[in-house]
Write a protein that binds this DNA or RNA. Structure first.
Lengths: 263, 263
DNA sequence: TAAATGTTGTTGCTAACATAACAACAAGGT
DNA sequence: ACCTTGTTGTTATGTTAGCAACAACATTTA
């Protein structure tokens, strides 16, 4: 009767992103609670119009989410959730794999020609993308790596990205003084304090570096990790000499202040 | 100019099932071959109307598939395929997991009440679903298991499902005489031959059991694996006494014939 | 001025959603 | 037998939402 209005809305969204429509999701959910139901029962427990139930059930059968009985009237049963979700994911993963292959083929066939114009500043969205870019930067380091970052960032996986940096490269890390002391193996100078910076300096208030950081490699490539307070983080990446110069000065300034405060 | 009409159609489909629209897929593909392109260049290489390119690029940035420069005009770059596909899959897998949890919660809260009316014959679609049901049947076996199946089926994973059957259960397997002899540990009788059955018997032609089989557990539950010649296999499952009786006779008949021919 | 950029709004199209109506059939009662 | 009553499965038809495609415009750059 009252069907089931208590379905978490995000469940419907999740199922949609697995390739189901709203009705398909509702019917499947309804079937999970009734076992061998007739089309009309499905209609009642799912809230989906009775006439729409038939094509929807057909699609669900095709998607291997429900099984049908050979009676009149037909009865339907849902595949258990674990199994059902796995069935859906199998298709998607197969698509993902074939797409990955096809895209890589297209991607390689263009060589590194027209290398991403070095004069630009790029924005990168998503923590994974930022970390990937950082890893590339660190791996390509030949002389120096400067890191000016909040400690939560460093411990959030960034420190691990520094592993592949060759020992011949000078690595400087500036972060707040924090409990998690991390004197990693290669020659790293850790300067305490220097967590923030004067905003418009009404007082000497220090603006904290929350989930953000500045990275500079070989004085040639730089990345600004902007810890978006709201949701997904973003970053600026650039090889532009002017921008690099600016970042260099910034790091120098903060480092200086940190060194002074440390005394 | 001529853009890229040589895009494999299934690539577009694959990307769609990863949550992209047609335009999003085209633009991303186009960007993979141009590196830092302007919106107009994206329009040219992707074939997407110029005006539509802007909202599409916005969406792609949100989905962490492209990065943007801070120049005028803006320039866009694609995340490498491996990374991009992974970014898409991360979301989907997270949705799958939360859906799985929510569905299981709903699923459990109904107990095995109204147990799937035993008088019915159910059809099950998809090899995975069939195997899962078979596994359940075998695990619940208490006295006997009868298997009458083509050898390709057995070696295709069905034989492995028999592992959990307790040693006290009598297991009979009938299959064609095939090279892959498999005298598994517990007491299994393997009768050679008996691969087929007379159709309407114009001659003694044997109808081969291709990708199909008959399974009977405790003389109470039975499953017919119908090796659909075309695509995905289907199966009939039943606990109906009448249907079980029929299958029992069928197995007896074929077994008899096999035994006779073996002599 | 000319060309290109970025934005806005309109229209068309398609799949999904939603409702209504219908023929076929099976009770069940008079 | 007949006529209800109710259910099943199907078909037709209208609505909505999201994306696709186009046209027009203000703004910038050269």
């Amino acid at each position: 009767m009252n069907a089931s209005r208590d379905i978490p809305n995000n469940l419907l969204e999740s199922l949609k992103s697995l390739g189901l429509t709203k009705y398909e999701a509702l019917v499947y959910i309804g079937l999970l609670r009734v076992a061998g139901a007739t089309a009309t029962e499905v209609h009642e427990t799912s809230g989906v119009p009775r006439a729409s139930v038939y094509p929807v059930l057909d699609r669900l059968v095709q998607k291997e989410l429900v099984s049908v009985s050979h009676t009149t009237p037909k009865r339907f049963d849902a595949v258990p959730p674990d199994q059902g979700v796995e069935n859906l994911m199998r298709r998607i993963e197969s698509d993902a794999e074939s797409a990955r292959l096809a895209l890589n083929a297209l991607y390689r066939e263009k060589g590194p020609g027209a290398r991403g114009s070095q004069e630009l500043v790029w924005t990168i969205y998503g923590e994974e993308n930022i970390k990937t870019r950082l890893a590339e930067m660190f791996q390509g380091a030949e002389r120096s790596v400067e890191v000016l970052a909040a400690n939560d960032l460093l411990e959030g996986g960034v420190l691990a990205l520094l592993e592949p940096v060759p020992g011949s490269v000078q690595v400087n890390i500036v972060t707040e003084r924090s409990p998690g002391e991390r004197p990693s193996r290669f020659g790293i100078h850790i300067l305490p304090l220097a967590a923030g910076y004067d905003p418009l300096s009404t007082q000497g208030k220090l603006l904290p570096y929350e989930r953000s950081g500045v990275f500079l490699v070989d004085n040639a490539r730089t990345l600004l990790w902007l810890g978006s307070s709201g949701e997904q983080p973003s970053a600026l990446y650039s090889e532009s000499p002017g921008f690099v110069q600016f970042v260099r000065r910034h790091i120098a300034s903060v480092t200086e202040r940190a060194r002074a405060a440390a005394q």
